[in-house]
Computed example of a mutant assay.
Amino acid sequence: MPMTLADEVFESLHGLMHQYRHLQYRALRGGAEELTHMEHKVLGFFSVHPGATQSDLVQHAGRDKAQVARLIKGLRDRGLLEGQPDEADRRSIRLTVTAEGAAAHEVARTQASQVNAQAVAGLEEGDCRQLLALLGRIRGNLDAVQPDTRTAVD
């Protein structure tokens, strides 16, 4: 059975994302702290939501609790995240990014921005806006099939 145009679009997107992630991972691994993609995303979440809990991240990201727990433990062990017991519920730990974690996240964010800029080099602003609009329409089509499946940490 020959590929449809829709198949070709998604094969192209899939290949593009593999190439992009490879470059992102290489940039993240080149930093002093050697962050993984998910560690970078977790630091980003707690940078924007200081004092959030592990449960907040699980709910926000739609990730497996055990995976999130391992990520947080690793970041805490490396001194990139710290936690304080919640005043109202001592079982909950409120997490914040340490100064070292903020520095590592900033380096990773800068490296990711460089990869992003290289990826769209040569595209005009209008091209980028049109691409965003088209991708938004595709996302809307998929949301109509299965709403609320997006994750912010992906």
Results as ranks from 00 to 15, higher is better:
Ala103Asp: 05
Gly140Lys: 12
Ala69His: 01
Leu28Phe: 15
Gln111Thr: 05
Phe46Tyr: 08
Pro50Met: 00
Leu80Arg: 07
Asp154Asn: 13
Val115Ala: 07
Leu43Ile: 05
Leu132Phe: 14
Ile93Pro: 02
Arg63Ser: 10
His40Pro: 14
Asp56Trp: 03
Asp77Trp: 06
Thr53Ala: 04
Val68Ala: 06
Ala99Val: 02
Gln24Ala: 11
Ser12Gly: 12
Asp7Ser: 15
Ser12Phe: 11
Leu5Glu: 14
Arg129Leu: 12
Tyr20Lys: 00
Met38Asp: 13
Leu123Ala: 01
Leu95Val: 01
Arg29Trp: 09
Gly62Val: 07
Arg29Thr: 03
Leu81Asn: 07
Met1Leu: 08
Gly44Val: 09
Arg90Trp: 07
Thr36Gln: 05
Arg94Trp: 02
Gln118Phe: 10
Arg63Pro: 11
Glu87Trp: 00
Ala102Met: 06
Asp154Glu: 07
Leu131Cys: 03
Ala108Glu: 10
Ala117Trp: 01
Glu100His: 14
Arg76Val: 14
Val9Pro: 14
Ala69Leu: 03
Lys41Gln: 14
His18Gly: 02
Met3Asn: 15
Asp143His: 11
Glu11Asp: 06
Ala66Tyr: 07
Gln54Asn: 00
Leu13Gly: 02
Phe10His: 02
Gly101Leu: 10
Ser92Leu: 02
Val58Met: 05
Gln19Pro: 06
His105Thr: 06
Arg129Val: 05
Asp64Ser: 04
His22Pro: 01
Gly126Lys: 08
Ala117Lys: 10
Glu125Val: 07
Gln19Phe: 04
Arg94His: 06
Pro50Trp: 03
Ala99Ile: 10
His60Asp: 12
His49Asn: 13
Thr151Cys: 10
Ala52Phe: 03
Arg63Lys: 15
Glu87Cys: 12
Phe45Arg: 01
Cys128Pro: 00
Gly74Asn: 10
Ala32Ile: 10
Asp56Lys: 04
Val153Cys: 13
Tyr25Thr: 12
Met1Ala: 15
Ala152His: 14
